[in-house]
Every structure is written in C-alpha cells, then in structure tokens.
Amino acid sequence: MSVIKVKNISLTYGKGTSFCKTALDDVSFEIEQGEFLGIIGHTGSGKSTLVQLLNGLLRPDKGRILLNGRDIWEKPKQIRQVRFKVGMVFQYPEYQLFEETVRKDIAYGPKNMDLPPEEIEKKVEDAARFTGLRPELLDKSPFDLSGGEKRRAAIAGVIAMDPDVLILDEPAAGLDPLGRDALLSEIKNYHDTRRNTVLLVSHSMEDIARISDRILVMNKGKNVMLDSAKAVFSRGRELESMGLRVPQITRIMMLLREKGIPVDTGALTVEQGFSEVLGCLSQKHSAPVRP
C-alpha cells in the first residue's frame, strides 16, 4: 500500500516577479508503506522543495498530495496534524535546539501534539535510544553537547513525534566518516525496528546506495527515475549527465565493462565490486562478453 501519493504537483516560487523560478514541474509518484527511499539530485533540482511539500510546509500551486489516501490540504487548518505524521529533519538540524535540557528539547514536538506527560517521557527516551544518545546526556544543556551529539538530539526531537513518515535532509552533512556511518546505521536501525517509511535526501551516492530500497532521482524540477538502487546506478552515464556522481566503485565497474570486462555495473559497495572482480579473475580465460 502506498503511504504517500504525489499527483501532478507543480510549484513556482515568486510568481509574477522577475525572480520567478519553477521548482517542481508536474511531479507524480508513490511511496510504499515501510520503504526506505533515497532522494538524489543536485542543488536546485527541486528535492528540498519536494520534501517540504510532503509535510505541508509548502503548498503546491497545482496537484495533490495524498497521505494514507487523504489530501493533506483537505482541511488547511489541520495541517499541523500532517506535520506530526510526516516528520521532517532539516539540514544542520542542530541549529534548531533551544530548550534548557536535551530532554525538554526532544519533548517539544510531542508536547505540541498534546500527549500525556508519561507518554511524552517514554517517547523522549525511545527517541534518544534510537539516535544513540546516552541517557546521562538528556539532562545536559543541548548547547554543551558535541557537534555529533547535537545532531542526534535534534533528530531525536523529530523521531519522538513518532511520525509515520520520517524525512531526513542531508542528515550526515559535515560529519566525519565514522560519525556519518554511525548515524546512518542508527537511522537504518530505526527503520528496521519501527518499519516506518523513511525518506533520505543526500548528495552522497555512496550513503544512499548503501541503505535505500529505492531511489528517486530529481532533475530540473522533475522526477526522472524511481527504481531500485542497483537499477538506478546502472544508468551511471545518465546520472552523470545530470551533474550527479555515482559511487566511485560503480564508476570503476562501468569503465571495466566498457573495456569488455563482464562485471555487474550495479555494484554499489566495495565488497560487491570486489566479489565482481574476483568472479572475473577466477574465469579469466573464458571469452569476454560483448560490451
């Protein structure tokens, strides 16, 4: 079943002025309940606009967005309810922390939902666990945390609302390789445990390739691909023409194949690439496939 159905949405910024810019142009697609969807596209492709439309922070000029079968703008006064169901973690979310303690800050969302105190407390602790925040950090000021911990506290603030759909915009931006890997595996773990729908927007193809079920590719305000990671990355040349970069390992596989080596160009990780190359080496005397 699809949790979100996007039907022919278009959005133009600054209509009627000289700064007018079409951000999205007749976009339609569906997101399945429980899937992990990666969204890629270079700056200005419309991906940030798209995710802000999904949780009602922006309103489309044309078209409809259905959440569990209902138009999210059916009752504009109740758009907040939509925002509780579609949680949104912005880029550099640590800049939104404001409360005296981490605990209070994470509780801000659930409090706005008017939940009873015991439930809020439980949600805060669950969210902290998912993001790997140690319990003793909860009573500290968010401004005393390290960069990575602040990032986690901010993400926990959205997870604590227990949304049906969680959207993360570049959650690992600015983190070092280890911090990035840890955060992504926590998100993956959250997804596997809760079986919720997660949307991950990123520039990093390596990250997206590793954890997404399917990938949505945006280019110039249109959705140009929506397919499994393997299928999307096997169209490496097309992605490159859109100014996107495929993972280095995928490029190596692409170039090997162009030289007539029978490797699978859908290899997304070093391990997969390694086993592809091993496979070729073990049968190196057999005839090469036609490129």
Partner: peptide, 11 residues
C-alpha cells in the same frame, strides 16, 4: 529556516 524547522515539530 528555523521557523520551518520548528513548524515541522508542530510549533
């Protein structure tokens, strides 16, 4: 940006 982020948390 901050307003949007807080609105997303139900502000």
């Amino acid at each position: 940006k901050i307003m949007n982020a807080q609105k997303a948390r139900g502000a």
